[in-house]
Simulated scan of single mutants.
Amino acid sequence: MTLMSILAQPTNGTVRRRNSIVVLIIACAIAVIISVSTGSVPIAPNRVLSVIAERILPWSISTTATDVETRIIWEFRLPRALLGFIVGASLAVAGAVLQSLVRNPLADPFVFGISSGASVTAVATLTLGIGVMSTVTVPIAAFGGALAATLTVFLLAQRRGRVTPGRLILAGVAMSYLLSSVTSYLVLRASAPGQGVSQVLSWLSGSLAAADWGDLGIPALVLGVATLVLVLLSRILNALLIGDETAASLGVDVGHFRLVMFVITSLLVGVVVAVSGAIGFVGLVVPHAVRMFVGSDHRWVLPISALAGGLLLVVVDIAARLIIAPSELPVGLLTAAIGAPFFLWMLKRSSRGEA
Results as ranks from 00 to 15, higher is better:
Ser191Gly: 02
Ser191Leu: 08
Ala192Val: 15
Gln195Lys: 13
Gln195Leu: 13
Gly196Ile: 12
Gly196Ser: 14
Val197Cys: 03
Ser198Pro: 10
Val200Asn: 05
Val200Met: 10
Ser202Glu: 11
Ser202Trp: 05
Ser205Glu: 07
Ser205Cys: 14
Gly206Asn: 06
Gly206Ser: 05
Leu208Trp: 02
Leu208Gly: 13
Ala209Glu: 00
Ala209Phe: 08
Ala210Met: 13
Ala211Asn: 12
Asp212Leu: 03
Trp213Ala: 08
Trp213Gly: 12
Gly214Tyr: 07
Asp215Ile: 05
Asp215Cys: 08
Leu216Gly: 09
Leu216His: 14
Ile218Gly: 03
Pro219Val: 05
Val222Pro: 00
Val222Tyr: 04
Leu223Trp: 03
Gly224Ser: 05
Gly224His: 07
Val225His: 04
Val225Lys: 02
Val225Cys: 02
Ala226Val: 11
Thr227Met: 04
Thr227Lys: 04
Leu228His: 00
Val231Trp: 09
Leu232Tyr: 07
Leu232Trp: 05
Leu232Arg: 15
Leu232Met: 12
Leu233Ala: 14
Leu233Gly: 05
Leu233Asp: 11
Leu233Glu: 04
Ser234Asp: 01
Ser234Lys: 04
Ser234Glu: 11
Arg235Leu: 06
Ile236Pro: 03
Ala239Met: 06
Leu240Gln: 10
Leu240Cys: 02
Leu240Tyr: 01
Leu240Asp: 01
Leu241Asp: 12
Glu245Thr: 02
Thr246Phe: 09
Ala248Cys: 01
Leu250Lys: 00
Gly251Trp: 08
Val252Thr: 15
Asp253Thr: 07
Asp253Ala: 14
Asp253Pro: 02
Val254Gln: 05
Gly255Val: 08
His256Phe: 13
His256Val: 07
His256Leu: 13
Phe257Glu: 00
Phe257Trp: 00
Phe262Trp: 13
Phe262Lys: 04
Phe262Ala: 05
Val263Ser: 12
Val263Thr: 14
Val263His: 04
Ile264Phe: 04
Leu268Tyr: 08
Val269Ser: 14
Val269His: 04
